[in-house]
């Protein structure tokens, strides 16, 4: 019990460590992230620049804060869209079985058959690279994940005795899906959404790393990593700082998701 609360607090703290500066960066950063000052480039940490400056002389702390905001926006939008599409698909597939199930799940397969990066490149070829294309790619990539998880978690529920009882009682499949099945899949969904939320952050970083995601001058952790890659010998700080930011944010999200899942399970156990 104590432990559950501790990990909830730790998760909240780590997530806040990532979310709060990101939100602050929407209105204020220590330095202007678009202000380029080549004369002040590649400075080490100092009182003026706590995390030093990048090759363009921009303040790394400001870039990390603002980059977090961009990453957060992309991840939240993508996961919300993916849940909104994926959960109904999975529920319907598990409820109807037969050809509807086949059709939906194979449709999800077709979608999922495009590996994330390839999907993003194809989309960026059509829409042009940018935050929209990255969000769309991550969302589409996650739809079949949520659909499969929902379906996989719902299938055993449909063969459970209480569902059979509800069906004998004449409840419609929709009612059963909403009252009996959905509550039983929420736990796995939260765990999966926390995993996918972290994956979405990683995905955004990867796409921006490959130049397919967030475009300059908008800051992004993935772009910072890509820019810093070749400087890792002379200024490893530039690659390590955004890397740690990603690890913190993703670890915070998964910890939070875990703690929430445990919390839900306990409540359900009590009910």
């Amino acid at each position: 019990m104590m432990r559950g609360r501790a990990s909830l607090i730790a998760g909240l703290a780590l997530t806040a460590l990532f979310v709060v500066p990101a939100l602050v960066a929407l209105v204020w950063t220590p330095w202007d992230v678009t202000a380029i000052d080549v004369a002040a480039r590649l400075q080490g940490p100092s009182a003026r620049h706590w995390l030093g400056t990048d090759p363009f002389g921009r303040d790394v702390l400001s870039l990390v804060m603002a980059g977090g905001g961009v990453s957060l926006g992309v991840a939240v939008a993508a996961i919300a869209a993916a849940l909104a599409l994926g959960v109904p698909i999975g529920l319907i597939a598990s409820a109807r079985r037969g050809w509807i199930d086949e059709g939906l799940m194979r449709g999800a397969d077709v979608l999922f058959a495009f590996p994330g990066l390839l999907l993003a490149i194809l989309l960026s070829a059509v829409f042009g690279p940018g935050a929209f294309d990255a969000t769309l790619a991550i969302a589409l990539f996650n739809v079949p994940v949520f659909a499969r998880v929902t379906r996989g978690a719902a299938l055993p529920v449909w063969s459970a005795p209480f569902v059979a009882a509800a069906r004998l009682a004449g409840r419609s499949r929709l009612t059963i899906a909403m009252t009996h099945v959905l509550p039983n899949v929420i736990g796995p969904l939260i765990v999966q959404a926390s995993i996918q939320g972290g994956m979405a952050l990683l995905g955004e970083a990867g796409l921006s790393f490959a130049g397919l995601g967030v475009q300059p001058p908008a800051p992004s952790w993935g772009r910072m990593l890509a820019d810093a890659q070749t400087l890792i010998g002379s200024a490893p700080r530039l690659a390590i700082v955004p890397g740690i930011a990603i690890v913190t944010a993703v670890a915070g999200l998964t910890l939070l998701g875990d703690a929430l899942a445990a919390h839900l399970r306990i409540r359900r156990g009590r009910a």
Binding site: P236, I246, A249
Partner: peptide, 29 residues
């Protein structure tokens, strides 16, 4: 809730949070 559970949980969180390409760069270094 055991020690192993905590260790594996920590490993899992850290491992999942690290971008593989960044891990590659670090391994090269």
């Amino acid at each position: 809730g055991g020690v192993l559970d905590h260790l594996v949980g920590a490993f899992a969180r850290l491992g999942m949070a690290i971008p593989d390409f960044w891990l590659g760069v670090l391994l090269v270094l």
